[in-house]
Design a protein around this nucleic acid. Sequence first.
DNA 1: CATGAATGAGAATTCATTCAT
DNA 2: TATGAATGAATTCTCATTCAT
Lengths: 194, 194, 194, 194
Amino acid sequence: MAQILSAALSEFAEMGYEGARLDAIAERAGISKPTIYLYFDNKEALFTEVIENTITRTIREASEAVELADGTTEEALRLILGLAYDHFIDTELMSIMRLLIAEGGRFPELLETYHKVAFTQGRALMQGVLRRGVARGDLRPSPAIETPELVIAPAVFLSIYRMTFNRFAPIDKEEFLGAHLDIILNGIRAEEHA
Amino acid sequence: MAQILSAALSEFAEMGYEGARLDAIAERAGISKPTIYLYFDNKEALFTEVIENTITRTIREASEAVELADGTTEEALRLILGLAYDHFIDTELMSIMRLLIAEGGRFPELLETYHKVAFTQGRALMQGVLRRGVARGDLRPSPAIETPELVIAPAVFLSIYRMTFNRFAPIDKEEFLGAHLDIILNGIRAEEHA
Amino acid sequence: MAQILSAALSEFAEMGYEGARLDAIAERAGISKPTIYLYFDNKEALFTEVIENTITRTIREASEAVELADGTTEEALRLILGLAYDHFIDTELMSIMRLLIAEGGRFPELLETYHKVAFTQGRALMQGVLRRGVARGDLRPSPAIETPELVIAPAVFLSIYRMTFNRFAPIDKEEFLGAHLDIILNGIRAEEHA
Amino acid sequence: MAQILSAALSEFAEMGYEGARLDAIAERAGISKPTIYLYFDNKEALFTEVIENTITRTIREASEAVELADGTTEEALRLILGLAYDHFIDTELMSIMRLLIAEGGRFPELLETYHKVAFTQGRALMQGVLRRGVARGDLRPSPAIETPELVIAPAVFLSIYRMTFNRFAPIDKEEFLGAHLDIILNGIRAEEHA
DNA sequence: CATGAATGAGAATTCATTCAT
DNA sequence: TATGAATGAATTCTCATTCAT
């Protein structure tokens, strides 16, 4: 059953919901087509199960890793963004995101699950770091405190980019992360005085 | 033919390439199915034509608007980001982006077209603004100069967000743009004081 | 569409609902399988349409014929039973009856239709003849007046018989009808007196 | 094995041959699907076995009961028709009859078995009673003597009726049997008087 | 130009049947 | 004797595509 889910994730990610063929999934999983029906009611059930299973599994792994260091605000930011890049980019979660963007309109419950289980959690984590930073005097009370999505946005952008344009103009993950941290922390404006 | 393209864009955007039905497109366009074949060789040709047509048309409109004001660096940034938000969010271009994310793997030429025609151009524009800002002493020579994607990323993020999670936790476009400009310009770090 | 209905009637009558193959129906009708779907939503719709269409068509024809002669009671009985035999035995209506017996449990609405449109009407007709016979003094006020089914029963029996056992021990329709009339009119008991 | 046959009879009777599912039979019998194959070669073998088994079993029971009373002709008739009603209506034999009507075309050997084992025997029994009645002077030498089916027909009719239309316009078994005997014995014609 | 009518190729799904245990 | 797991062979149904008009 794990093999079916894994095969299905690949096929769905590559072909989309409609484009995916149960034939292909069965072949990837090394079983026969009817066997899929021993474990899943139908294509839709398989699809939703794939999504939910992957989300919860990945989030569980991620959550375990996010024992936030007691370090400085900058270290915490660096850590959490590093984790975001590691989990979002070139991973199964990225495939899920692509699927949700593509098929979300037709599977709104999945969107909701992902929103609740993954997005909201990540957002809260980031907001916690920012708030602590402000409390410590490390960060100014910028609008980012209430819009932590802004801080995460470049990670999401890179995830999309890697799935699409990267082949034409590659962007290096580490370099991008470095620049990301720099800009977020310091902005692009030149020092006022002088 | 314009009606066909328009109908097809809607249908493809809603249903994806495989999910889209020529029946449905014909109905939306108020014509009969075979008529589509008078103008397009087949479904794939219609799809690529829809994408390319929409891209070029939208980009043309956008380009006309980007007679960059001679104003201050901040005004230029504000202007170009405002245009990005206006063209990317809740528009046809957003549908195209969704389609490219969803189907890009199977239609790489379309990705390339979009990359060349839209993305590269927008990136160059942004980079121009940034470079001029540095030259004028308004902006520091940050890594964003070579990674202008970072400055655009939140617009892309919001575009995706509006297509997916917005229904569960709405984000206001104008507010988000305001925060976006603030963070990009100033960063989140507290003034070093001294 | 008439050809599809006709082909479907044959196939359903021979094979039952589940046993019937759309392939076979298409072939009998000289068309391709998908063409069936141009006219009928699915197998079930085709089935119910076949039944209802055949019933109403046949009943219409029958009704036209039942301009009951003003003749004697015996002539009227002879006429109406003759019509029953002609319409029930070795005809399309017989196939319908077989189908309803076989599949009635799964298609109760069809049973109801047939009951209303065919059976009730025939029963009322027979009852009318019997009542007039009693009024004229030709018939005694027997329990058959309120149970006209008894008078029709042998026709139904023969219909079933022809579909099943006739091949092993053939029963001649005309002879059977003759005996039927005789028994119904006179009973089998010997004259009392003497 | 008895449980399998019983489960199979129910399922076949309800769903027809094609409609019946081995899954369902196994579940009704409280065993697993492959177990059926320990006792029966395949679905068809199970079906024919069910039919033949039920027929022979029921006929055996019936035969035992038909130690014809030495009573009057009328008593004998009453007895034999009573038995027919009891065995044909709302019983397993009725289900068998329905199955044979439905599937007889595809299983002619079953029809033959039923014809030989059940029908011919019942017909002979009835004919014996009639002939004895004529010999005794109780019955006239009517055509029914050579067509005893006519006398049985209403029982068959009622059996069919109970499987189909009874829900829309119920017929009481006992009343019907009473009317049946009256009509068969006396006919519906008024006394010639004199 | 436009379309009503038709279909070949293929998709999901079902089910009788098998087999290793 | 019994069964959990698996599948080959259908079967219904869909849809892009064609063609005569």
